[in-house]
Design a binder for these strands. Structure first.
Lengths: 192, 192
DNA sequence: CAAATTCAAGAATGATCGTTCTCAAATCGG
DNA sequence: CCGATTTGAGAACGATCATTCTTGAATTTG
């Protein structure tokens, strides 16, 4: 059946994702990818199609592996709010302390390529919707468990958290990220 | 003294700003600028220097004219919180209802060019700091006027609002922006 | 009006863009 | 081991990139 690949497509995809994540779509040239991935030009095109296709694959991989701050810990049994607080604090801390200030690939894609790029628009919309849904479900459970004020609106709170988190992921690119610690503590006060 | 300019540099700068705002830095070519501005290639370079210089000029113009949501209404005498609420609601409504979903040039610059571009990093940092300062001053005044809870932290609240607003400016690029209305109402609850 | 100066339009620059092609080396199934 | 097939390295593609230069027309000053 012919020669086997000298490279692992999954590993290469991760490397491409990292480069797009750091430099953005337009600023990343195919030459950059060839240099950084250590994979031949022709192999890239044969395996992944075009540069744009590769970007979509990288974006899919990013959301699939939950690199945008997976919310799986929301579904664990027990009290919701303590877990949510701890998770959000950890997430913000990660963004505030990361040595590489790349932000979030979903957020970056939204700002750089939405709304002009329809494929990307559809993908980030799915990601945001999923995030909102996960948070809404968790907050509904919190309400049922008596953890929320009676007049709290779980879906509105979830929408707020999704929006606020995008702000965190923008300011995570700045040199000074001390702002984020204050901001997240205030945001979490809404869950009291 | 030679021939006079056939174009108004200020008008041209505004047109360039709009194009960068809509398409981003990398995706906007000099050819795009020539076509959209109706100004000769050589004139652009003679008047503004390089493409990068023009972008910085456009960014400066954007922040100077307060297109990123000027907060001048914060300094007006009288109660702070009603004005702040109304201003933030109006800002979010503008982003939610705008036909062109370009977001905010400062936010877009932060995501696309920070931290790699030092000139842009410095400029957006100044813009965020100024916004935080304006909000902090207003909230300090609100506290002095008894509008805030005794344990409220004006600077932390200001930092929260700056961060949250970046999230609004990201999600303002999505086709469906109903999320923003819920989000802003929740955010404003922190000022109760 | 004449000379000086600056304009606008676009050709031309070399570099780089994304993509395709060539081709020899490598590895598979039979 | 052999024909088939796919690999990797890089040349080559036309297009476009940001920038500079050439050219002739337009406008000002003297």
């Amino acid at each position: 059946m012919g020669r086997t690949k000298d490279f692992d497509p999954d590993t290469t995809l991760v490397a491409a994702m990292e480069l797009f994540w750091r430099k953005g779509y337009e600023a990343t040239s195919v030459q950059d990818l060839v240099d950084h991935l250590g994979v031949a030009r022709a192999s890239l095109y044969h395996t992944f199609g075009s540069k744009h296709d590769l970007y979509l694959r990288a974006l899919d991989h990013y959301t699939a592996q939950g690199a945008d701050g997976t919310l799986t810990w929301l579904a664990e049994p027990g009290p919701v709010l303590p877990a949510l607080r701890a998770g959000f604090r950890a997430l913000a801390q990660d963004y505030a302390r990361a040595t590489e200030r790349n932000g979030c690939l979903v957020t970056n894609t939204t700002v750089e390529l939405v709304p002009a790029d329809e494929s990307c628009t559809q993908r980030v919309t799915v990601a945001y919707d999923q995030m909102e849904r996960d948070l809404t479900i968790a907050l509904l459970r919190a309400g049922a468990q008596g953890e929320l004020a009676p007049n709290a609106d779980p879906r509105a709170l979830a929408r707020f958290l999704v929006t606020f988190l995008q702000g965190v992921k923008v300011l995570a690119k700045l040199p000074d990220r001390t702002r984020l610690v204050d901001a997240i503590e205030q945001a979490l006060r809404l869950l009291d």
